[in-house]
């Protein structure tokens, strides 16, 4: 029986593969995450070497766990972008090879669209205002006129970059979100930090500089972690609230790596209550980068006839979400 899609994700630190069925069942979601040395960020080449080393194992595991045989795969979907070039190319090579050897089409998927569509599948969100917060994105998004449109975003750093660069300044290795959340839970001492909301957009660069300065000035890591979280999360919650009020929608979906943060989820829930809106949080296993976001979105796209010839299947490091046609939504 055909009808299963294999999806491959490799835009940044995660190499992951997943098999999904046409009914939206996620049959496997295997991954290997590159962890940079302490105090460092993702070095694109080092990350790609890690992906190369783990690709065969992750792919074999995804197939094995799914219980689906190779000849039941109808198409291979891959994250064509946006992301780090060397990392993207590992996933693309694996996808091309598999598509050619299995004799099935190759389906290009935008990584950000993948986060949103998987979030909708898993939470049942129908027409949400989406907060996409990760190392690569900080955007408030809603569907309109055939595309996922960006209503607000960070004008400089992403929320993930803010947390990672702050954590690395303290000597941690990326991603630092979990360690910052842990440290912040030990403090209730708010230190004043710059709060920068510009219309529907935010800016984090001043907040990062001020937070590093507080650390350098001898303030404790927990106090500054607490303060940076309270400030940055309030900023993104405020702009999400602005977009929610503006669009008059009644659902909010939070996706991306930073969606795993419990404090952010609590703030968003408190905000949504005022607007009688529902907050959907993707399960932690699926909120960060994973193969399932590519497999599921690949399935939606393939049902609409979206494919790419192997000869044209380049990667796109810059591929903005709002340029992608979404024919599977009204």
């Amino acid at each position: 029986m055909k009808g299963f899609i294999l999806g491959i994700e490799s835009t940044a630190h995660t190499f992951s593969a997943s098999v999904v069925s046409a009914r939206g069942e996620i049959l496997s979601n295997s991954k290997s995450v590159y962890k940079p040395p302490e105090g460092s960020g993702i070095h694109p080449f080092e990350a790609s070497q890690s992906h190369l080393a783990s690709a065969a194992r992750v792919l074999a595991e995804a197939m094995c766990v799914s219980g689906v045989s190779q000849n039941e795969i109808s198409a291979v979907a891959y994250a064509m972008g946006p992301g780090l070039g060397p990392c993207l190319r590992v996933g693309a090579v694996a996808a091309r090879t598999l598509a050619l050897s299995l004799g099935v089409p190759l389906v290009p998927v935008n990584h950000a669209v993948g986060h949103i569509e998987l979030g909708c599948l898993l939470t049942g969100a129908q027409d949400p205002v989406v907060l996409l917060v990760s190392g690569g994105h900080t955007m408030i998004i809603a569907f309109s006129g055939g595309k996922w449109r960006i209503l607000g975003e960070s004008l400089d750093l992403t929320l993930g970059q803010l947390l990672d660069q702050f954590g690395r300044h303290h000597g941690l290795g990326s991603p630092c979100g979990a360690a910052i959340e842990e440290a912040s839970s030990k403090s209730l001492n708010y230190l004043r930090l710059p709060y920068s909301v510009k219309g529907n957009d935010v800016s984090f660069s001043g907040l990062l500089t001020a937070s590093k300065a507080l650390l350098d000035g001898g303030e404790s890591f927990s106090d500054v972690s607490y303060s940076i979280q309270e400030t940055a999360f309030a900023m993104v919650t405020e702009v999400t609230e602005r977009c929610l009020a503006f669009t008059s929608k009644n659902e909010v979906l939070i996706v991306g790596g930073v969606a795993a943060n419990r404090r952010l989820g609590l703030m968003m829930t408190a905000m949504a209550k005022r607007h009688s809106s529902k907050v959907h949080l993707a399960p932690v296993e699926y909120s960060g980068d994973c193969g399932a976001q590519i497999a599921w979105t690949g399935l939606l796209a393939h049902e609409q006839g979206i494919e790419i010839p192997v000869d044209d299947s380049k990667v796109r490091q810059s591929w903005r979400l709002d340029t992608v046609e979404i024919p599977w939504r009204r």
């Binding site: 809603a142 309109s144 006129g145 055939g146 960006i150 209503l151 607000g152 510009k198 219309g199 957009d201």
Partner: peptide, 13 residues
């Protein structure tokens, strides 16, 4: 920029 973002985002037609 915000006007453009809003008009393109919410009134694309």
């Amino acid at each position: 920029r915000l006007i453009k973002e809003t008009v393109v985002g919410a009134h694309s037609g």
